[in-house]
Design a protein around this nucleic acid. Sequence first.
DNA 1: GTTAGGG
DNA 2: CCCTAAC
Length: 604
Amino acid sequence: MVFQKRLNYGFNGYDVPVIPRASRSPRGRGTIRKKPDSSQIQAFEILASVAGNFLHENESSIPDNSASVKDPHAFSGITIEDKHEDEGFKGDLFEHGTCSEIASACVPGLLGKHDHQRIMGDSSFLGNHLEGQGQNVLEKEDEKIKGRSVNEKIVHIKGAEGITEPCHKTSKDSSSEINVEKPSLEGHRNLDSLPNGSAARKLVNRDDDENFVRCTQLNSKNEISGAPPGTLKLKDASPFVSDENNSTRDNSAFENSERMYPFKKRKFFNQTSSSASDRGSHCQGICDSSDTRVNGTNHSAAIEESSSMAGQQVHSGSRGCNVKLSIKSFKVPELFIDIPETATIGSLKRTVMEAVTAILGDELHVGILLQGKKVRDDSKTLIQTGISQDDKRHRLGFMLEPRHTPISPSSYNEDPCYLTTGSRPKLSRQSTSLMLQQGTYNVSQERSMIKIESCAEGDLNMDSSLADTSANNNMSKCRTLVAVPAINMEALAVVPFRRKSGNPDFAQRRIRRPFSVLEVEALVQAVEKLGTGRWRDVKQRAFDNAKHRTYVDLKDKWKTLVHTARISPQQRRGEPVPQELLDRVLAAHAYWSQQQCKHQLKPL
DNA sequence: GTTAGGG
DNA sequence: CCCTAAC
């Protein structure tokens, strides 16, 4: 193993762009999955918060769509732009709007365009440019981490505080435990079982995002198939392997929700640019409320009057002023990234981007906080709730919450808590080592980390939402976060925003989600049994719960696996696939190719 | 809706 | 991963 230096970047609070990635094609190719996997967002529940400004109507200087603010100078420069002028925050929209309306209206505003492309492409090495330059954000951890290749990156994302409070039990104790303890992979794993040891390692590193899956399944609204996790039927004899030895992983391992970006990439041509400039003028600096600080306990952003507005409010009669809200940005509390010094700037950017998008890439709901309290009743009007022109002093906050909260009992999933909680030293150790050893960077890994770290806080939301009790409960535990319990998801459900003009074809390219070794193994096993050419079945068999893996993906992956198996190890990239698996790939490929030939010839 | 392949 | 032709 090669020891490498790694750099840790701590992002204390991070404003994130709404749109994760730029689509590569002008045509807007790409498809959007209908269901985002809610998984990752778990972490996000706690993390994201919205800063906003409370504006008054009648402010001539403010565009109708001023609801969203764009302030290029605030924070890290990433801000949300309001692009949908047409829809908007027209005054009357909120006159008697309900909280839900606000929420739904606001979210769309987040669909701004961001130049994510800037993140890509740099080729210089961090070591060359950053090392020794006094980058405060960098902390070198010499040789603490073993890396395999120069490009390996370990991304560690965690909640602001780093962690660790016990997670919600409601969610999934059983599954988590299983993960940890299960000693070996048996042919048929029950839902709860999880491979441990080496297997466990894989799980941790790989599709962590998958783990999130289970959460998905409880979505009230968009029920994702409720296919019970772990339903893989791998009993049939495979021409290649016996189930005993090559047990298939529990489906749940791969299960997951497909991840969908709630944010479609949209192009707001002219409108965007113009509005941006306008808005910037009055939004500056508003949002950086103290509470958005990472370490602060509350990440929700407070809304304050916009500076420009101050003193300008016009109370047009008590009748009902429109409330204009300006959401400056959404903030992710803190991200920790561990990346080798030899990584390129481009890698760093991508890593950060991935980390951020991993957090944001899911369906989100908007929660509303008024003076620190969560406004749960979506049916109330703004006035009834106390949100009115007269209340500008009130601090209105918005927060993003995961779409659902869930917990699927069945799926396996390591309980994040264990990792951080002292109670499960073993697990933690494993996961840690995993991370360290497996330098390979991949999205999943990041996500998993996110999940893990945020767990403690996340519980909160989950519990509350599930219980629908009044809430509050968790506040105490979630020191880091927003004290916002679950809100009425339905009411606040973010509706995909569409511009009137409707440019439906702005789809977001799916995020790249490298196959984990575990997934590869499952794929290999399925193909060994089913053969190539039956991708639908393979999907059903081994990835039924991995919503983000389509049969086309599996087919493509197989294609790449075959290719990978044929090239020299030196030419391979990404997370190393065990040679044993690659050998099986070649064997299966050869076998089924042969079968195919036979069948074609036989008829003759 | 699936497959199979090229991009 | 995306996109499509061909089923």
